[in-house]
Design a protein around this nucleic acid. Sequence first.
DNA 1: TGTACATCAGTGAACGCGCGTTCACTGATGTAC
DNA 2: TGTACATCAGTGAACGCGCGTTCACTGATGTAC
Lengths: 229, 229
Amino acid sequence: MNAGRTARERARAELTREIKAEARRQLASTGADGLSLRAVARELGLVSSALYRYFPSRDELLTALITDAYNALGAAVETAVAGPDRPRDRWRAGCHAVRDWARDNRHEYALLYGSPVPGYQAPSDTVPAAARVPLALVGVLRDAHTTGEPALPLVPADLPAELTGQLDALAEALGGGVGRPVLFGALLAWTQLFGIVSFELFGQLVGSVDPAGPFFAAATDQQATLLGL
Amino acid sequence: MNAGRTARERARAELTREIKAEARRQLASTGADGLSLRAVARELGLVSSALYRYFPSRDELLTALITDAYNALGAAVETAVAGPDRPRDRWRAGCHAVRDWARDNRHEYALLYGSPVPGYQAPSDTVPAAARVPLALVGVLRDAHTTGEPALPLVPADLPAELTGQLDALAEALGGGVGRPVLFGALLAWTQLFGIVSFELFGQLVGSVDPAGPFFAAATDQQATLLGL
DNA sequence: TGTACATCAGTGAACGCGCGTTCACTGATGTAC
DNA sequence: TGTACATCAGTGAACGCGCGTTCACTGATGTAC
């Protein structure tokens, strides 16, 4: 194992991991703006300038954390969706995986789906990682409707032309296999899913359906029905 | 006019307004963490310590901005909802008012509905202001269904007991006049509404339905149908 | 197998920056008689 | 109406803090012959 890797290369990979792990820990306790290179270095027993051998700037470290987080969430949803057989259960499992991961990694979730960090522009590297969740959810719908899509309740037949154009382009980008109404429904469900999770984590549900577990379960159920699962 | 107010009181009220206005301006360009008392003072031609005559700390200034923002958004939605006659149009107008205000005040929206500011805990003063939007939207539903609520499509009759308990408590807190299914539907729509707006403003829709106008319009239409409007 | 050189990790000091908050003060505005 | 005192706004200096990033350096690890 580790064939062809020098001790230096292994040490480098190891310390890169440790830097990210420590940065994640600080993220969890202080949030994105509390993340400081100096504090990370301090905690690892390094001098702050040493980190520049591993990340050329604070922003690059942030980007690495964002990509890792998107991938972790994406993997969680992909795994969850791969479990059950019945489409309806697969959908629910995927949604609950989003919520569970978000609750377990609040600050990382906020980093991905909260307010953009001021002055920081996420590079396009993060796009494929960010796409894993929607892709996994759309996959459930595609698999469920291989023999033809049902007519979805409540989805109007006469969507405006601008929207149908966007939907068609999106369907093509997703590799086909989903019709307009299902895709529209998927977008509705997707935004609702993250709307609920964000409201729960950011404290907007405090006066109403808090704790949010029962409401979340009922909402994802309703989504499955809406989507013909 | 200004009866009984001394020049001092008027000057004080005026400068308090100017401080908040300048702080809002900085918020708009730098986001919540970029808001600095020193910078605000600088811009107003004051020495930084002078601000302490007006706000006892940076957090208090932030709180004032948050309360003002909730009230501005709430007022916008209340006005929008008061315009049209038909319930369906009232609902749509309220939703579009949320989106329009959010797009016109991105950073203030992020302050209210984005990731919580680390280390800052919003005091309970903000709660009534925050409640104005949901209250206005529920008002539309109540007014629409004075003669009895319709059976809502897709809302399961057998919601779990924990959820029905929360819904009943919430209905009472809202002053009654809305049944469980309608309230559940309202929560679904409410979370979806802010989910879409947040996704649009925070850049999550870039690869899919961007610009988001047509999708937003179709989504609020679908909500109105779901809610029996 | 051993030696000479190149690569790279980590150090420590420094630069230049901005921040929130406190405090003793001056001078203007307001109040009571 | 004028005077004596109290209130309050704004000043300027200072405290103590932490940050990202650069740079010349030492010493260890890797490579070529």
